[in-house]
């Protein structure tokens, strides 16, 4: 955990952060609104004391209540991974600004997030499905997309494992959306 990074981030983005900086193990996490993503990552990338030059990953997340876009960044100035969470995207029509102006390599990762979650990245010139056929209509990694075979769910979910033929007494209906307690 890099305490210095934490204070630096708080100083720099104080008013923009949606929640306090979280640090655990070797990761530092900040949350910003989707509208602030462009300014935040540009500052993180350009400012010499931050200098997060490498985009390690871009992921979409469906928390069950809203969508997130999660960026993992690396800088030689710190020993931590920096996680930037663009929080609070509308589940019905998720939109987020693209970071392809900074990391062109994010283009496909954003396409993947669009393919899996339906998050539209504004500024990405190629937001189309990347894995699934163009005519496909749903977004499989959303939490309301259930696998056809509920035998694949584990006993922990209260749904029958593959061996049992009878439904368990306390089976949860498959239409329930699993919501993140993690947020």
């Amino acid at each position: 955990m890099d305490r210095a990074l934490r204070s630096r981030l708080e100083r720099r983005f104080g008013e923009r952060l949606l929640s306090p900086v979280v640090q655990r193990h070797d990761e530092t996490e900040i949350r910003v609104a989707a509208a602030d993503v462009v300014d935040t990552v540009r500052a993180l990338h350009d400012e010499p004391d931050l200098h997060f030059i490498l985009l390690a990953d871009l992921a979409g997340v469906d928390t069950g209540t809203h969508m997130q876009v999660v960026y993992h960044l690396w800088s030689e100035r710190t020993a931590d991974w920096l996680r930037v969470v663009a929080d609070g995207l509308d589940r019905e029509a998720p939109r987020c600004p693209s970071v392809t102006f900074l990391w062109k390599g994010a283009e496909w990762m954003e396409r993947e997030a669009y393919d899996m979650f339906g998050i539209v990245f504004e500024g990405n010139r190629d937001v189309r499905r990347i894995y699934l056929p163009a005519a496909y209509t749903s977004f499989p990694l959303r939490k309301d997309f259930h696998l056809a075979d509920d035998a694949s769910r584990s006993p922990g979910m209260g749904v029958r494992p593959m061996e049992e033929t009878l439904p368990p007494r306390d089976a949860t209906p498959a239409t329930n959306i699993r919501r993140a307690q993690a947020g």
């Binding site: 390690a56 990953d57 992921a59 997340v61 469906d62 390599g105 496909w108 993140a180 307690q181 993690a182």
Partner: peptide, 24 residues
């Protein structure tokens, strides 16, 4: 990138693969 919601299953698991990025 893994998110746990306290159950025995990952809530979200993101897999980053270098081949995907490099093919771009």
């Amino acid at each position: 990138y893994a998110i746990s919601d306290g159950t025995d299953q990952p809530f979200r698991m993101r897999i980053h693969d270098p081949s995907f990025v490099h093919l771009q």
